[in-house]
Design a binder for these strands. Structure first.
Lengths: 334, 334
DNA sequence: TTGAAAGCGCTAACAG
DNA sequence: CTGTTAGCGCTTTCAA
């Protein structure tokens, strides 16, 4: 007949013939306990019906071991790949990963005001979401270490992507290949709560062309919703013009696939008759043999974690703004 | 200059010029504190924004429920799509989503023994990971509602995929199309910590062929690591045989892309000279116009959440085992 | 891999 | 009324 009081690690320790340290270890980092002892302790825990007191844990623990990630609702593969980098880096350290998804401007606002207060987090990563001055101030005031990805703010650390440069790189590459009639295809999904890096890519692209004295006629700038089918349609229109482009810079890989499909259906040879350059270098770009601008998606996540953790360790450190390099990956489509 | 670390009663005590005892008393039995001191302490408390630590934690854990997801480290797109279904369903219900990724058998064991204890979770979803009797028992004993996806266990609710049936469907479809020399291509990634549904698909596939009296020669069963390039190589070998198959059932869409690539490079016409059927119906299958077995990935996540939440609400409910239907999506490759 | 011992933030005696 | 001090159950160095 076990005692009346709820069992503590001390009871478990005695029961299993080990020290309380080992029991604690068993609970928190079981892999650091010998398989043998582990079984004994597990048995003791079961036998006594032991449940750790959350309150006592909270007391004894330094931080909460929780990192929050606020991300647009992951419909686009690129978020997922960033997230993958984050998850990887985080699970290596022993942090819990809490995900908040955003699907509206209100939800973002609401998260941004509640999370720092009640989120009980050690740190926060915000993916591809706009943070205004008030938000940033609140984050700073609450002493919640935060790293922004893809949307810089002077008061918070960030990992940035140089979308303008990316667009420029695409332009330069296609020009070098001898193209003169070059079109741009981007997406129309401009939710107020999210960013639109695609616009930046267009800016850079236009710059690149201008520097070479090439026009980008309005008819060659097309937008389509972020879906394969819709993009395919728009691409087909573009390719059916009397004077169609000989190259298209598609601002996202995913849409580039739609363009390739349109070309296939119209029996247009890629890259002979049409060059296609994408952006992102998603996993699937390799399959499609898509020439594309590689941005280090996984790496951006890992880096964000690294910056965040160092900030958590020494809060006095100044904010860092890292710009990840872009690379053009030459494959078969251009 | 707000503090960086959450303030403790020590901070408050110093700030108010009293001892920690008095602060503690102020919080628990305010009437036993002098009106004068009380005011000073009160002032200090909200000057510092003091919140008792345990309480802060409790509050964070209480209001919004927490659902944990244990998933293999998401390298495969199929996990991501399941996760997407989960995230969607969960954020609608105002639940917090905590992600634990597994990259080894030890890590899985470790999570399975620590998470129920210290996770502070209201429910748990385990994706495509093997749960043995001891694990299941612990989960049940701790009263942590759990739903398994893709790996059933009698004592826990689950959402299952009928991989055997899927393999059979693929076989039947190809047979109906008149194929007789049909090959199988699966992946070799058999981490001990994860499952291998692909084997089940092969079993079903073989059954389907046998029922029609068709042989599946060993030379037509090929495995390749889960990567486009490696799969492409193996497929190329297969297609370069003296008597190559006229159809290939590729057990994962992602690898099917590799097969298609091999066919392209060898100038083998799909579907005229080679039929290809995939499995999963990932987003990218649509792009590739891949005929494939559709499993409801997003839906499996949503469903898991639904079952879990209903289990949380009424813990007495018996466990449910739902088998999601599979559908063959006919596109261009077979 | 393990244990001793020093905290963690807080409460509860016990004097004053 | 207030401060000192000894725990509470648990985590986390640091040696061994």
């Amino acid at each position: 007949m076990p005692p009346n009081k709820p069992p503590t690690i001390y009871d478990v320790a005695r029961h299993a013939g080990v020290s309380i340290t080992t029991v604690s270890r068993m609970i928190n980092t079981p892999d650091k306990v010998n398989g043998d002892t582990r079984v004994r302790i597990l048995a003791a825990i079961d036998a006594l019906g032991f449940v750790p007191k959350a309150e006592a844990r909270a007391r004894a623990m330094r931080g909460t071991g929780r990192i929050g990630v606020i991300s647009p609702f992951f419909t686009a593969p690129s978020f997922v790949q960033r997230l993958r980098g984050i998850a990887e880096a985080l699970s290596a350290k022993k942090f819990e990963l809490v995900i908040y998804t955003v699907d509206s401007a209100e939800r973002l606002k609401s998260l941004l005001s509640s999370v720092p207060l009640t989120g009980n987090l050690d740190g926060l990563i915000i993916l591809s979401l706009p943070v205004d001055d008030a938000d940033a101030r609140r984050l700073v005031d609450h002493g919640l270490p935060t790293v922004l990805v893809e949307f810089p703010h002077p008061n918070l650390s960030s990992v940035e992507i140089d979308d303008v440069m990316g667009g420029r790189m695409a332009a330069q590459y296609l020009l070098k290949k001898g193209h003169r009639r070059i079109a741009f295809l981007g997406d129309t999904d401009l939710p107020e709560y999210s960013l639109h890096p695609v616009s930046q890519r267009l800016v850079g692209f236009r710059q690149g062309l201008q520097e070479a004295g090439i026009e980008l006629p309005d008819a060659f700038v097309r937008l389509a919703p972020y879906s394969q089918e819709q993009t395919r349609k728009v691409a087909a229109e573009l390719l059916s013009m009397p004077q169609p482009p000989t190259a298209i810079f598609v601002a996202t890989d995913f849409q580039a696939l739609g363009v390739l499909k349109a070309a296939r259906q119209l029996k247009i040879q890629v890259p002979e008759q049409l060059a296609v350059v994408g952006f992102d270098d998603l996993d699937l770009a390799e399959y499609a043999d898509l020439t594309t601008i590689h941005q280090h998606l996984d790496e951006s996540g890992r880096l964000a974690v690294e910056i965040l953790l160092s900030q958590i360790e020494s809060p006095s450190r100044p904010t860092r703004h890292v710009k990840l390099p872009l690379t053009l990956i030459e494959r078969q489509t251009a």
